[in-house]
Design a protein around this nucleic acid. Structure first.
Lengths: 152, 152
DNA sequence: AGAATAGTTTAAAATCATTCTAAATTAATT
DNA sequence: AATTAATTTAGAATGATTTTAAACTATTCT
């Protein structure tokens, strides 16, 4: 395979999905395909994996010339999460972060910037976790490695 | 050693420290032993390990008949943390939790109640963590297992 | 298609944990 | 005891998120 073909393939992986495709994703998730949800879906699905807050998305949407209430973006992100289209990362102070990477994985957190970076799960192994008390089930397991830049 | 002696030992471990002792801890940490810090120290040091928020502490302090500004409790907890007398747990949404257990360990988080439970570190093993980019250092590594009660 | 309905979006207000401010108080030092 | 510097405090401010209730829109029904 030529380098050129590889690039085309890579582009296809991250290519923006058609509205038709996004509408199908929304319908499959039991969500009405509203203009707002289709637009946000276009920014999140079929793209490179992202870690987004409502605020960051709001800024991006505004930059793209769209007008959308911040409350709508909060609603949308929570609905996508509930529908299993997004994961929530519970590690960043003062902000709810959503992750488009649905695979089980962990994160580096830059404590200075709040930036999250995926840790490839395939290499990480967590063992010896004690079993839960009766009547409890694990909802998720999350490893956060807080990192900071050395100042010198 | 008799069972009775063992109990006395155990009690001593969790016995409330004398003010003199707490004042020494504060001084060693470079903190002025104010009335407020001594009182809070008495609730946190030399006791069984606890996970506390400013709010919970405020309620406990009020219940004990003391009057203390919530801002003072926030200040105090942050100062204790900065001085290495407390750890901060960055996993519970919407609230800053402080941990009197200074040893490296992980947590169960009850997602319904927000309650944290220590996971004995000696049994848990985390391997295969990728090395950090140049110029970065890890500040901490935290494993959170989010659990919920089965409803039946 | 047009009307009925149920769900969605919106701006603005409310919430709530936390932080800030500036004045009053207290601990340490002289 | 007087001075200085740190601490505490009440109350205001902050800022992310949620709520409210009215306007809007997608879907269903006829």
């Amino acid at each position: 395979m030529s380098t050129q073909n590889l690039e085309i393939m890579m582009n296809q992986v991250d290519a923006k999905l058609s509205d038709v495709h996004i509408i199908q994703i929304l319908k499959d998730a039991g969500l009405r395909p509203t203009r707002q949800r289709i637009f946000i879906g276009g920014l999140l699905f079929g793209q490179e994996h992202r870690h987004v807050s409502a605020d960051i998305l709001h800024i991006q949407i505004s930059t793209l010339g769209q007008k959308m209430a911040l409350a709508t973006i909060y609603n949308c992100l929570h609905q996508f999460h509930k529908a299993g289209l997004l994961k929530q990362v519970n590690a960043v102070k003062d902000v709810i972060m959503f992750d488009t990477n649905l695979d089980y994985h962990h994160h580096f957190l830059n404590v200075d910037t709040g930036e999250l970076t995926d840790i490839d799960e395939s290499t990480v192994s967590i063992g010896g976790v004690p079993s839960l008390p009766d009547g409890f089930e694990a909802e998720s397991m999350e490893l956060i490695i807080r990192v900071k830049q050395l100042n010198n």
